[in-house]
């Protein structure tokens, strides 16, 4: 198995505003290695979220290719993409996006409804995922009863539970205070170093980016690498 996870080739994304078409980026080519932890930085509107959506197969490029794990995903049907996402990608959002009516444990179990695992096995996995994010004792709480940092940890557990190849995080600490943000970032770092999870994290916070192994700056549709971190 090669250690390359993602290969983006000549990737472009355009939007039409009125009559003119605006390119967010053009001819973007890059690779992401298995086990990497990348922070993507850049000004607001530079296309960070758009790029993450293309990596996660929830948006389609205007041109070019996205290959993940040797599978070309940019031309898959909606139905096949949905299936692919359920087992290969975990998403973490700025505003947690938990289901308000479900408990923490049920939120974490949600992706497992798409697998053929038994109820018992699902329970075991949910328990493990909640332990990894140190929230096992809050399993029965609803999102409303949890702090922002705790909700984000539930969201991380949900992203982890199906054992995906990659975690895609869009401003995961954007809504949190410094101390809580650091806890979340340490958790992500731990997932990367101990469990070998590949992580792509979008942030505009330089302090957050320091937790990553590699920082990329996206500006005017181009990447600028800014030094490797240990």
């Amino acid at each position: 198995m090669t250690d390359v996870l993602y290969e983006l080739t000549d990737l472009s994304k355009k939007y039409t505003r009125g009559k003119e078409s605006v390119a967010i980026f053009e001819d973007l080519t890059m690779t992401i290695n298995r086990g990497d932890f990348i922070a993507i930085m850049g000004p607001s509107g530079s296309g960070k979220t758009t790029l993450l959506n293309l990596l996660g197969g929830i948006d389609k490029p205007s041109g070019g290719q996205v290959v993940c794990n040797g599978l070309r995903i940019d031309n898959l049907s909606q139905a096949r993409l949905a299936k692919w996402r359920s087992s290969h990608v975990g998403f973490i959002f700025q505003f947690y996006n938990l289901m308000p009516t479900l408990t923490a444990a049920q939120n974490v179990e949600l992706p497992l409804l798409l697998t053929k695992l038994s109820g018992k096995e699902r329970k075991r996995r949910v328990q493990t995922a909640l332990e990894v994010v140190k929230l096992a004792e809050r399993a029965k709480h609803r999102p409303r009863q949890l702090s922002g940092g705790q909700q984000q940890r539930v969201a991380i557990a949900r992203a982890l539970v199906a054992d995906p190849d990659v975690l895609l995080c869009d401003e995961p600490t954007g809504d949190l205070d410094r101390a809580t943000a650091d806890e979340i970032l340490e958790t992500l770092q731990l997932l990367n170093s101990e469990l070998g999870k590949t992580i792509v994290m979008v942030t505009h916070d330089p302090a957050a980016a320091k937790y990553a192994r590699r920082e990329l700056h996206l500006d005017k549709g181009r990447f600028v690498e800014s030094g490797a971190m240990a």
């Binding site: 139905a79 949905a82 996402r85 996006n97 949600l110």
Partner: peptide, 15 residues
Amino acid sequence: TKEVGVMKTLGFSSS
């Protein structure tokens, strides 16, 4: 709307 979007992101099919 947003919850439906999240469900789909997790891999729940449109059908």
